[in-house]
Design a protein around this nucleic acid. Structure first.
Length: 810
RNA sequence: GCCGAGGUGGCGGAAUGGCAGACGCGCUGGUCUCAAACACCAGUGGGGAAACCCGUGCGAGUUCGACUCUCGCCCUCGGCACCA
């Protein structure tokens, strides 16, 4: 049998349309368009590691489908892509394979760009940005100098986290469980002068996330990380000395219960307070504490230890003599590095007091009985006892009263502390933005003049991590001839690459002129980002830094909005057979799949396998289901409808289904529910197939096919473009409006009424649109099934839910 | 320990307090084929011959009616964790 049926062949149609889209420039933003509302749809850009893996597809193709949908909804959509191109892998490749990092990076970018084209995403590539290009990182330097001017960037000597594998310092956020977030190596403490950005100045503002359309989980993580804590700083005077020790407490109401004080081993006063008699023991203890890792020291399982210094302080409230200990469970990095010990009302202090046989003084009582015997700390509410003039006060009230009292006596002050530390941005590595400052012989800081930016990263020959930036080896970079100051030394550390991604969205939204970091006019129109998507792993790194950067740029007068990303959606993690996908152990490369089944199949399957935010499990078997469906869709849409009858009325049920499906897809795509959108399209196509054999008219068929193709197009852009053409419509389906729906057509003339007896479904029947309740009840009671089930029992109550259900209660 | 998300067929997953299991995979049967694969059609939660009963982690509760709401518990995953 001869047939003119053209089979679905994605390997031909996909490149065909990719080329056509590029030539016709349909995804380029129309800046002249003033009518359409602007919509900035951004996904977190990738690191150019070499290949786009399936995880990238999982992140990028649903975001593209959403962007296409919004474009078809009539928005002027900015959807861009670029490369987060600075960072260690390039440098490590240079070390291990002797390749120039620049060359390595740009080769990867070229490869990944061509892989991006295979996805069929609707990016405006004119806006591509690559962060390792001088024209981009120049502005990192520019913002840095502006921050330096305002005191937001500063250099400080202090204890820093050091990654012994990558041989560089890290920011607090990049240390997870005492390990480097990147290398996995256990970090150590070092004393070094480093560059910081004063993110702590914005701690309070960063806590306010009420107006952000972000997942609660991420907001929570950020709030947790910022870690606001309100309390009182209390000064304890050292006996026979004028020196005081500051302690921070959130429970100043327990001040009369203080029976000891603990200093962190690194506390600067340890040396001063230690008496000669106890010095050998204390020195040994401090030395040991320095040796044990942060993981050991912060383990909750570990028993608290300490060592008496031989010295005492005076409780500022009652003059009690309080022994001073050194204990490594006290962290020098939080609060003041010293705590007051109240064993009766803090479990850690309780254990410590038990171990060292210290007094336990009870000052908060649940029931006003001061004689209560304790076998663990009482940390609940109560009234004060043993607390002089504050006795009888409710403890919450006492906190304020005692703090006020202390402030009058100048022995204490209300204090807010944060867990958040300033952002350490200097790195002792090569492949990053050079920090644009100069030092004279006395180590005074001189900013590089703005006019001399960018400070270009020179080509380097040696990259071995030595603990010093490889730039120190380059004399021509290192030395700077200043007209007045003479020979100056350049800063050789480079910036944390999270600086690059802290403002890249502004650059994407701009047609840069080279004179400015971004275009004010366009920033006003496109920002803040309306929809941002990406992984949750950036919750307290990138996402926090970018919010901070935004507020700084606002305060420097560059922008006028408070938050960079108005709405955020986190996709979940894609697994394969319940295991993490990795290049070696459990590979899943998209390119062969694209070659064999087409990009549309891969896109659709990734969107179909489950709700996007929950992640999912790739299954080769289930993937077959999508390719099968695509073939069915193809076959359905290329049928010759001229064979159909010309003069048949539209079928109202099909009309209803098409309106219902359209509505459902709107609702689902608005919530990123791609999986149920695709299900709805499958139902529609299955039903349409049945209608084909059932006397459908040509006019209605063509209309349904047209809508089906348009509804499918954001998710499967290539096949829908081809089917659009085959059905005789003009290029491009992606420039069509997304169809609306008619609510009145969704409502059916006849309704199916479910009949329940005692809440259990027993029967169902159909009624016409506006049948009265009485009639429905009598009709239901007449059903054979219903009669059987009721039997001789009495119907006590009938509950009728309009057009849906009737429940008889016996 | 604290905070968050979740627990539904053999599997991935659907269900504004109203038919539990949409859609897909897999499986079973059929059509096509010399045969197989593909494709297509039908069936598919468990028990039962059937009527019907049971069934959304467990236990209570609210309700005419609960996967959905409330309380208590168990488990899984993610985050935080000596933060004074």
């Amino acid at each position: 049998m001869e047939s003119d049926f053209i089979p679905y062949n994605p390997s031909i149609i996909e490149p065909k349309w990719q080329k056509k889209w590029e030539q016709s420039r349909i995804y380029e933003i129309d800046f002249k368009d003033k009518k359409k509302e602007k919509f900035f749809s951004l996904t977190m850009f990738p690191y150019p590691s070499g290949d786009l893996h399936i995880g990238h597809w999982y992140a990028f193709t649903p975001a593209d489908a959403y962007s296409r949908y919004m474009r078809m909804r009539g928005f002027n959509v900015l959807h861009t892509q670029g490369f987060d191109a600075f960072g260690l892998p390039a440098e490590n490749a240079a070390i291990s394979r002797n390749i120039n990092p620049m060359k390595w990076t740009f080769e990867n970018i070229d490869n990944m760009r061509s892989q991006f084209l295979l996805m069929g995403n609707s990016y405006d590539w004119n806006r591509e940005l690559v962060t390792c290009e001088p024209k981009y990182y120049k502005w990192n330097q520019f913002f840095f100098l502006k921050m330096l001017e305002k005191g937001i960037a500063y250099r400080k000597n202090g204890a820093v986290w050091w990654d012994p594998v990558d041989q560089t310092t890290l920011a607090n956020e990049q240390v997870v469980d005492g390990k480097s977030e990147r290398s996995g190596a256990e970090v150590i403490r070092k004393m070094m002068p480093q560059w910081y950005l004063k993110i702590t100045d914005y701690a309070e503002e960063l806590l306010n996330m009420d107006d952000l359309g972000w997942p609660e989980k991420i907001k929570h993580m950020q709030k947790n990380w910022i870690g606001k804590s309100e309390g009182t700083t209390v000064e304890f005077t050292i006996e026979k000395s004028n020196e005081t020790i500051s302690t921070f407490t959130t429970r100043v109401d327990t001040i009369f219960g203080v029976t000891f004080l603990v200093l962190a081993p690194e506390h600067p006063l340890v040396d001063l307070v230690t008496t000669e008699e106890f010095r050998p023991k204390i020195e040994k203890y401090v030395k040991n504490a320095a040796k044990s890792s942060e993981i050991e020291r912060t383990s909750t399982e570990r028993e608290k230890t300490g060592e008496f210094t031989g010295q005492y302080v005076k409780n500022p409230m009652n003059g009690d003599k309080v022994p001073i200990f050194v204990g490594d469970y006290v962290l020098n990095t939080y609060g003041t590095g010293a705590v007051m010990g109240v064993p009766a009302h803090d479990q850690r202090d309780f254990e410590f007091a038990r171990k060292y046989k210290l007094n336990i003084k009870f000052v908060i009582s649940k029931d006003n009985d001061p004689k209560e015997v304790l076998n663990k700390a009482y940390i609940g509410k109560g009234t004060l006892v043993n607390s002089d003039q504050f006795d009888g006060l409710e403890n919450r009230v006492a906190m304020d009263r005692i703090t006020e009292f202390m402030e009058r006596k100048k022995v204490g002050v209300k204090t807010t502390t944060y867990h958040l530390r300033d952002w350490l941005i200097s790195r002792q590595r090569y492949w990053g933005t050079p920090i644009p400052v100069l030092y004279d012989k006395e180590d005074n800081i001189h900013p590089v003049p703005l006019g001399e930016l960018p400070v270009v990263l020179p080509e380097a020959k040696e990259f071995k991590p030595t603990g010093q930036s490889p730039l120190t080896l380059d004399d021509s970079f290192l030395w700077y001839e200043h007209p007045e100051l003479g020979k100056l030394r350049r800063e050789t550390d480079t910036m944390d690459t999270f600086v690059d991604s802290s403002w890249y969205h502004l650059r994407f939204a701009s047609d840069p002129d080279g004179i400015n970091p971004f275009s004010d006019k366009e920033i006003r129109e496109w920002l803040p980002v309306h929809q941002y998507t990406g992984g949750a792993e950036h919750a307290v790194m990138h996402l926090l830094y970018a919010r901070f950067f935004n507020k700084v740029l606002r305060d420097l007068g560059f922008i006028n909005f408070d938050e960079p990303y108005q709405n955020l959606f986190n996709q979940g993690v894609l697994l394969k057979e319940h295991q993490k996908i990795s290049k070696r152990a459990n590979p899943l490369a998209p390119d062969p799949l694209v070659k064999e089944y087409g990009a549309d199949a891969v896109r659709l399957y990734l969107m179909f396998l489950g709700p996007w935010d929950q992640g999912g499990d790739w299954s080769d078997d289930a993937f077959n289901g999508i390719t099968r469906w695509l073939n069915r869709i193809w076959e359905l849409c290329v049928r010759d409808s001229s064979k159909l009858k010309k003069s048949v009325d539209d079928d109202p049920n099909l009309e209803r289904l098409i309106n219902y499906t359209t509505k459902k897809i709107h609702r689902d795509l608005d919530k990123f529910k791609f999986n149920t959108s695709i299900s709805a399209l499958m139902e529609l196509s299955n039903e349409m197939n049945k209608y084909w054999d059932n006397n459908i008219g040509e006019k209605q068929w063509k209309k349904c096919i047209k809508i089906l193709i348009v509804l499918l197009s954001p998710m499967a852009p290539h096949i829908s473009e081809e089917l659009w053409e085959i059905n005789g419509y003009r290029f491009s389906v992606h420039q069509e409006s997304f169809p609306g729906w008619e609510e009145s057509l969704i409502k059916s003339e006849t309704k199916t009424i479910i009949v329940q007896i005692n809440g259990k479904m027993r029967a169902q029947f159909s009624i016409e649109g506006d049948t009265s309740e009485e009639k429905i009840i009598s009709e239901a009671l007449n059903l054979k099934k219903v009669k059987e089930n009721i039997g001789t029992q009495e119907v006590k109550r009938s509950i009728y839910v309009q057009d849906k259900l009737i429940n008889f209660v016996l």
